[in-house]
Design a protein around this nucleic acid. Structure first.
Length: 104
DNA sequence: GCGGTGACGGCCT
DNA sequence: AAGGCCGCCACCG
């Protein structure tokens, strides 16, 4: 299986995103790496952009490597605050404390 | 088949 | 991890 179909990728991503605990956030690259698409973290984001179309997934718990929230998804920040995620004054997530670790 | 795009990552400053 | 720049690679027109 050299090239997974994008639909497979979608379910893999959503499965990982669903594993993210409350009060924690994961980077696209982190999820991409778990799905085997470490080179295409942006594809992960594109999938998450329509994740709600596939079902109710905590796509708001996913941010970029800078801890930044999605440009067209400002509600994400509010949702994360409700989950207990710490935000900096500049609007970035406190990665050092809230970045999710798959290892536990 | 080609060119442009992007919910990104990594390195440098 | 704050801001800037370049590089990556599938997706879309």
């Amino acid at each position: 299986m050299a090239a997974k179909m994008n639909e497979e990728l979608i379910y893999e991503i959503l499965s990982v995103v669903e594993e993210i605990p409350e009060g924690k956030v994961a980077s696209y690259g982190q999820i991409a790496r778990l799905t085997g698409w470490d080179k295409n973290a942006r594809l992960v984001g594109k999938v998450l952009s329509c994740a709600e179309y596939y079902g109710n997934y905590p796509c708001h718990r996913v941010v970029n490597h800078a801890g930044r929230t999605a440009p067209h998804f400002m509600e994400q920040r509010k949702l994360l605050l409700e989950e207990g995620v710490i935000f900096k004054e500049n609007g970035c997530v406190d990665m050092g404390k809230c970045q999710w670790k798959e290892e536990g």
